[in-house]
């Protein structure tokens, strides 16, 4: 039972990071290859505050979010300026992710590569559940507002968006800062779930996992990436018996999705009761954009 709670907690934490990234990658159309770094910043900020300074858990989490958001703002400022070229950012994040890890390995307050052991276990399953529900709900509100529509407009056609008076830089910056804040929150929760963090936990493998979940789940869907990240974490756990096959199974899932659902599990749609009804009314489902609503 303990074990299952653990798996569910990790899924909940990663859902927060994934949903944040889906705003940036799925809805705004920019790729990040270093999002684990935002989790690392949130994790270390929150952990250092509770561990060395006895700051209350909630405040430490908020500080982790803020720190991540702040760093993303500084990173985004020069890289997102190149108005129509999102690829600068992807390349920059690759280096950024590694740089953060190297910094964490060399600072004294982070205790270098050994990491921080003995962090208090504040992240219980109910805490994870509450935070992930709140984040998913807020992200949905974001997507269904003018801010969300502007992000999608920029993804769909940056020139047309600009000709509609939308400030592309501001839209991209908002998405980046929001997704970094989500990553920071997920990191803070993660640190206080595992009770131990070290820089090696936040490598590009984690960044890749998050980005894969968004792409596999559907660029322009929230439920899709949530389903995808849950699978990515649960399937290797279920297949733990055959440990050596875990990575193979993981790869196989991705390949199958790419072949059979190139636009992701959910594509541009959301999983909802309405979409089940639409299954019986195929034509309406194909033509109507109403499926985007949750």
């Amino acid at each position: 039972m303990e074990y299952i709670y653990g798996v569910i907690s990790v899924i909940g934490i990663e859902i927060i990071a994934t949903v944040g990234l889906s705003v940036f990658t799925g809805f705004t159309g920019l790729f990040s290859l270093g999002h684990a770094a935002f989790m690392a910043i949130g994790a270390y900020t929150a952990a250092i505050l509770t561990y060395f300074y006895n700051v209350p858990f909630i405040l430490a989490l908020l500080a982790g979010m803020l720190m991540s958001a702040l760093v993303s703002f500084v990173i985004g400022f020069p890289t997102l300026r190149a108005k129509l070229r999102g690829d600068y950012f992807a390349i920059a994040t690759l280096g950024f992710g590694e740089a953060i890890r190297v910094i964490l390995e060399n600072l004294s307050i982070t205790q270098g590569a050994r990491g921080l052991p003995g962090i208090s276990h504040f992240t219980t399953l109910p805490v994870v559940a509450i935070f992930s529900v709140i984040v998913v709900w807020m992200t949905r509100n974001f997507i269904l507002s003018k801010f969300g529509r502007n992000a999608i407009a920029v993804r769909e056609d940056a020139v047309a968006a600009e000709m509609a008076g939308i400030d592309i830089f501001r839209v991209r910056m908002l998405s980046l800062v929001y997704s970094a804040a989500c990553g920071g929150l997920a990191g803070g929760l993660f640190a206080h779930y595992l009770n131990f963090i070290q820089p090696a936990m936040f490598t590009s493998i984690l960044s890749t996992q998050l980005t894969s979940a968004v792409v596999a789940g559907g660029m322009g869907s929230l439920t899709g990436p949530i389903i995808a990240i849950s699978f990515f974490i649960a399937v290797p756990e279920v297949l733990r018996v055959a440990n050596m096959w875990r990575l193979v199974a993981y790869g196989l899932i991705l390949v199958l999705i790419m072949i059979y659902r190139p636009s992701g599990i959910m594509g541009y749609h959301e999983l909802s009761f309405a979409s089940f009804k639409n299954l019986f009314n195929r034509k309406a489902a194909n033509q109507s954009a109403g499926g985007r609503r949750m």
Partner: peptide
């Protein structure tokens, strides 16, 4: 043609009306 393809017809118009929506983040 440069529409916001994956948005609905209605949302294409709603998008460009964003300055009429005076709510904050």
């Amino acid at each position: 043609i440069r529409l916001f393809n994956k948005l609905s017809v209605m949302e294409n118009i709603k998008t460009v009306l964003f300055r009429e929506a005076n709510y904050n983040f």
